[in-house]
Design a binder for these strands. Structure first.
Lengths: 215, 215
DNA sequence: GTCATCATGTAAGCCGTTACATGATTGC
DNA sequence: GCAATCATGTAACGGCTTACATGATGAC
């Protein structure tokens, strides 16, 4: 889960840990701020696995320096110093990570992996990264979530109607049912949209896409 | 969290672990089935702390045997056998728990404790147990949740408008914002209802209630 | 008597948190 | 220089899950 989110962010450019943490909340709609105690070990793990590697800051591939200079002289000097020796980086300076080819493969695997992490957050994350999936894979993702939500809605509706609940407990389960049916309608709209684009394929169908069904 | 849920269920009658697990999902709207590996240690902990004690099944206080007999002769015999020696219970038979006075105190503390467990599930649980709170305590509970949700909604709305998100990520955060504002409206309705009952106090205001503000 | 189900428990391990420790940058 | 903030990491711990082991009950 966290690995997938990190790799997803790094698809769009090199980032250091602190910045990744900031964007995890903003971009991917992840509810809680991931703590450093989780994030840094995860990055170290990914680096050890060869999925990312640390590069010198302000390296030319991406994450452009937002103009000719940041206006900060000592910042530029620090960057130069860091560039001078990537390995002998000062103990606690920025450590910028970049996705490797191996990391891209891992990303694809994690994104397509249907079994792992079947909760709502995992679904939101995968859908947020939907542009890296084919139309077919996206549709399947949405359908699976639709089924899960429908099942849960049936359970909740059942509990609300049959059991003897006091007014507060009832109030809670009814709101839960309401939220779930709202989710369901949303999913159905999305599925319909995907189906439409599938039958009437336009321009950007399968670029960056995950192979739909070859295991 | 789990302790509070267990104590809440036991308020309404003696239960054994297996049954508690079943009801946790149904009654309290808890999303995931609590696993035995969590539940039984929790019960053991509560028993060690004196909040619950195990009693002989079919004891006369509550959890009435649903009729003169269950129709099962051997079941009755097993109950008799169990009643004969509560301490020398056969190794793996039902173990029925009952709330102690100490447990009721603990329940009240956990329910009123505002700081611990500030996530959505903790709120749902507390609201489900709302009848054990005073009007004032319930209102405060709702208001705190309202503030939290409003804050989160502001963050999500902000992220949706400002950041450069692709269509899928945007779709997710927009649905999230929609859900949050729906939650907010629901909370506002509940708060209004509580306020109305507060200014126009009817019959059952403060029974079973937690003292509102004496710490 | 045997199989499914009910029921209680233990052990290993994952995932994540808080708290702590440390170093680098930058503004004043 | 000094404080605030940025940035990286480690250690201790807790909650929860899965997998396993075991026993009791009831239907056939």
């Amino acid at each position: 889960m966290l690995d997938l989110a990190i790799l997803g962010l790094l698809q769009e450019g090199d980032l250091h840990g602190y910045e990744i943490r900031r964007r995890l909340r903003q971009s991917l709609g992840l509810v809680s701020n991931v703590s450093f105690g989780t994030l840094y070990p995860a990055l170290a793990r990914l680096e050890a696995a060869g999925a990312v590697r640390s590069v010198a800051p302000l390296a030319p591939t991406s994450e452009a320096p937002s103009g000719p200079a940041t206006g900060s002289l000592s910042g530029e000097l620090a960057a130069l110093r860091a560039r001078r020796s990537t390995l002998a980086r000062p103990k606690r300076s920025k450590k910028v990570y970049r996705l490797t080819d191996e990391g891209r493969v891992l990303f694809t695997e994690l994104l397509a992996d249907t079994g792992a992490g079947d909760d709502a957050r995992a679904f939101s994350l995968r859908l947020s990264l939907g542009r890296h999936l084919t139309v077919e894979a996206r549709t399947r993702l949405l359908e699976r979530q639709h089924d899960r939500v429908a099942l849960r809605l049936a359970e909740v509706t059942d509990a609300a109607s049959s059991a003897e609940l006091d007014s507060y407990a009832r109030c809670v389960v009814e709101h839960q049912a309401d939220t779930l049916s709202n989710d369901l309608a949303w999913l159905e709209r999305l599925i319909a949209a995907e189906r439409a684009s599938q039958h009437q394929p336009t321009t950007t169908s399968g670029r960056h896409a995950v192979a739909p069904a070859n295991s």
